[in-house]
Design a protein around this nucleic acid. Sequence first.
DNA 1: ATATCATTTCGTTATTTGACGAAATATAAA
DNA 2: TTTATATTTCGTCAAATAACGAAATGATAT
Lengths: 114, 114
Amino acid sequence: MRNYVKIFKALSDSNRLRILKMLEDCPMCVCEIRAVLNLANSTVSKHLSLLREAGFILDEKNGKWVDYKLNDKTDEPQVKKLMKLMTEWLNDEARIKADKRKLELVDRNKICNI
Amino acid sequence: MRNYVKIFKALSDSNRLRILKMLEDCPMCVCEIRAVLNLANSTVSKHLSLLREAGFILDEKNGKWVDYKLNDKTDEPQVKKLMKLMTEWLNDEARIKADKRKLELVDRNKICNI
DNA sequence: ATATCATTTCGTTATTTGACGAAATATAAA
DNA sequence: TTTATATTTCGTCAAATAACGAAATGATAT
């Protein structure tokens, strides 16, 4: 039960939904996500840790960055099912489409250097 | 987007999940739910209004009671899909099974009269 | 019409959440 | 090894949430 609540809580914030939808396109580091969402770095980091604890994403060290990506191969059936649904949902939302466009222009070598 | 958040928020509370699982078995009034969950009447009423606003349940006047029931025929695809999943999920949880057993013993003519 | 009773609304309180900036950590580059 | 920089953790604050009891509402039954 507790785990179900954790999973649904992870999905019940618009910034976290935006993050998940962007990660469908490609892995991203904290400062790339920050550049799109216009949030503080620490805020993005917190959102990512909630998504990770719920099982939706994985992190991977990559040079000086930490890349976050969807946990596509999860063996948790609930998470797997919800991630599948999420790929079908929200695709027509203006906000989501705008995020994805903005994401294409983001170059981690330029936008970092806080 | 706002609607997605509302839907997931509705599912991200254990008392609301317990309510939804009980409603799979039969419609219930506020004081029946209250008797199973051991919450104040007003608290149950609030949970029900959140579930209703998210589209998961409907209410129907029935004599002096208001019966709440699952909104099985909803035309909102997200709600429909999630309700389908919920019927498959949580069935083995001890808490849910206990709720359903307790529910069978509840007689609204006896347990109301607060 | 009045009394009864299920439900909702209101006001309050404690807890959780989402945000921030600053400090701590860890890795890469010089 | 020092410096730069990406990320996380910590402390704080404002807003949202979940709980309660009391009061208000609405419908039934006497």
